[in-house]
Write a protein that binds this DNA or RNA. Structure first.
Length: 634
RNA sequence: GCGCCCGUAGCUCAAUGGAUAGAGCAUUGGUCUUCGGAACCAAGGGUUAGAGGUUCGACUCCUCUCGGGCGCGCCA
């Protein structure tokens, strides 16, 4: 039996609905009857409400209040709720439900007691499946920038939520480690090394980053500038300089292309240089993830290079089956029947493959080899225009269904297998994408260092008694919580404004506030032991929810399983943030008004200690889904 | 030109199509002889950019307008 009141009430409502209106049971839509149970926003409307009568009124051709009345007459929830009568029907047909005090206590106790797969009321999935989460996506020879934060943090939170619910999750870090850009840097690294300008053995990622940018510049020909100079008959000297620049760049690019060919054909020296790039970059990348407490490790690395031997096969397959065709020398998949007017190029006219080919190969592997029933791409919203045709082509190719090779129309379920969990841009307070004052993009570790420094100052000021040994770790945990929570707590698809001051403010809906709520709970147990000596047996003690604050806290705790499910369904971690903030707020009210250690009776002390402990467990569990560790002291 | 996203209180953000649009910050006031004051309680502040439409009901869905941002075959 479910531990979630919304589910319990939902089952009872469905029974009542089918009892009152048997004609609904005969229709094929019977399984789709939605009892529409929600936690009430306003306490005046009770604890929970059903909004189903209004919807059913239409299909039944009856006034909604009459529908509600008939449901209420059949409703059998007496053992958990106050009597539901005609007086419980409000407005157009809302049915309000107030839990009986003893039932509220019992439900809360059961949620507390539930262990294993049912821990904290979270039921194992009825649809167990494998889910691939595509996250992070760094590029070789480039430092981890602040804009990698969102994909990593949001992707990790989504993956953790699925894992907590009991799904099998496979994270995939789709590293940009292949193609002409990478060949340019590889070429430059080899050249500088050959010329003795660098020692390849102790090159750092910052050096590679410089090389990457230099290689980019070297290979970019200013052909527009040259054309303009000619049009405007600028001086011969200017034109000569531009001609030299263009021919130099073209030569550099040609050289990079030769390096790419050498890399692709497995030339040992070139491959060795490339592996050096990969090792340096990934070492740094995974170290940043570890600092961030994001679960992204080497086993999750699946770079573009890992698909290189599958690209020709994908194109052949699509050509053979008539899904792809020749067009102006290139090979494309036409997508008009998918509602997309521009074809997707999967092989260039020069015979090369591009990222769309890699993405298709990745989808094929993820579905057919890794067994994914769902693939979630946690990638910047600006890539939406790229994913749409790639997903459409994958559907058309049947790559989204296990073993499917025919071309019949795909169902909406199959279509939902590939999801782009798009996120907005991190903005500065100037309304522009977050960058340094000089306009350079920022390195993620610098942001971490700055946040830790600020957290350290705050800890030093507010908790001077904290042992020095703990201070560093405490500051790091607070900083990570602040950064991650700020990123996760707003709607994923929207841009959000980054501000150290706001996220570190320790007030309001922030990571540090939640850590503080948790720390105060831990502190109560220390204080209780000091003052009371031996604690009353609070584990398993019956809950006394007499005050409004205790009652509200229990009701908030009961909303937990539903909140987790909502995050998984919507792929929106900010809903978990909102829930945890509600919980922390409910706890703070309780804390203010209900003394625990000083409670009048031993039974009440035990009850309140249990409530504290349960709150702490839910907070910790919820924060763990966001990838935020908690503290004992701060 | 085509397409996607966004517009909610002074600021930063919430609100599975549900009841009187909620929080935090800032402002003003209050509580408590602190189980950690990094607290709690309260007040003021709104034509949800604008105009139509769908419906019992719209911040939410549809159309148009305005404003802001971002993408648009052989780079990734």
């Amino acid at each position: 039996m479910s531990l979630d009141p919304i589910q319990i009430l939902g089952e009872r409502f469905i029974a009542a609905i089918l009892g009152a209106f048997p004609q609904l049971g005969a229709s094929p839509a019977a399984a789709a009857i939605d009892p529409m149970i929600t936690a009430s926003k306003n306490p005046k409307s009770g604890d929970f409400q059903s909004n189903t009568a209004m919807g059913l009124a239409k299909t039944l051709g009856m006034p909604p209040r009459d529908v509600a009345k008939q449901i209420v007459e059949r409703l059998d929830i007496g053992e958990i709720a106050e009597a539901v009568t005609e007086a419980s029907i409000a407005g157009p047909g809302f049915i309000n439900i107030k839990l009986r005090p003893d039932a509220l206590a019992r439900l809360t106790e059961r949620l507390d007691t539930a262990a294993g797969e049912q821990r904290l009321g979270i039921a194992p999935p009825t649809d167990p499946m494998t889910i691939v989460v595509d996250l992070m996506g760094v590029n070789l020879a480039k430092q981890v920038q602040v804009w990698h934060l969102r994909s990593t943090v949001i992707g990790d939170a989504i993956a953790r939520t699925f894992e907590r619910l009991g799904y099998k999750v496979i994270r995939q870090n789709h590293v940009g480690d292949w193609g002409l850009q990478i060949a340019m840097v590889t070429d430059r690294l080899m050249r500088l090394s050959r010329e003795g300008k660098i020692n390849a053995a102790n090159v750092a990622l910052t050096d590679l980053d410089v090389m990457y940018k230099a290689a980019q510049r070297e290979c970019s020909a200013d052909e527009d500038g040259l054309a303009m100079a000619r049009t405007w008959h600028m001086g011969p000297k200017v034109i000569a300089e531009l001609e030299a620049q263009v021919s130099g760049a073209l030569e550099a690019e040609a050289q990079a292309k030769r390096t790419l060919v050498a890399l692709q054909s497995g030339d040992p020296a070139t491959v060795a240089a490339w592996e050096r790039l990969a090792k340096i970059t990934m070492g740094e990348c995974l170290a940043v993830c570890a600092r961030l407490k994001a679960n992204v490790t080497s086993e999750h690395t699946a770079g573009e290079s890992s698909y290189r031997d599958e690209l020709a096969g994908v194109v052949d397959d699509l050509m053979k089956r008539g899904i792809a065709e020749q067009d102006q020398g290139a090979i494309v998949v036409k997508l008009d029947d998918e509602g997309i007017s521009t074809p997707l190029i999967i092989r260039k006219s020069d015979g090369g493959f591009i990222y769309a080919t890699t993405d298709l190969a990745a989808i094929r592997r993820r579905v057919q080899k890794l067994g994914a029933q769902r693939v979630v791409y946690v990638v910047d919203a600006r890539q939406g225009g790229h994913f749409a045709p790639v997903f459409a082509a994958a559907h058309k190719a049947g790559y989204t269904a296990l073993g499917r090779t025919d071309l019949r129309a795909v169902s909406s379920e199959e279509r939902a297998i590939l999801q782009h969990a798009a996120f907005g841009t991190m903005m500065g307070d100037d309304g522009r994408p977050y960058k340094s004052r000089s306009g350079e993009s920022l390195v993620l570790t610098d942001m971490l260092d700055e946040a830790i420094a600020r957290a350290d100052r705050a800890v030093a000021g507010k908790s001077p008694d904290l042992p020095a040994a703990d201070r560093r770790m405490t500051a790091e945990t607070i900083a990570i919580a602040a950064i991650k929570y700020a990123d996760l707590s707003t709607e994923r698809t929207k841009d959000y404004v980054f501000s150290y001051d706001r996220m570190m403010s320790f007030e309001g809906n922030t990571g540090p506030y939640l850590l503080y709520a948790q720390v105060r709970i831990k502190s109560i147990f220390r204080t209780a032991e000091e003052k009371l000596g031996e604690l009353p047996a609070w584990q398993g003690a019956p809950l006394d929810l007499s005050t409004a604050e205790e009652r509200n806290l229990a009701l908030t705790i009961l909303r937990y399983p539903g909140s987790v499910r909502t995050v998984a369904d919507s792929l929106e971690p900010h809903r978990m943030c909102q829930y945890l903030y509600d919980l922390a707020t409910a706890y703070s009210s309780f804390y203010q008004n209900c003394k625990v250690v000083g409670a009048p009776t031993e039974a009440l002390i035990a009850s309140r200690l249990r409530l504290c402990s349960l709150t702490a467990r839910v907070l910790e569990d919820g924060l763990s889904m966001l990838g935020i560790p908690t503290l004992e002291r701060m």
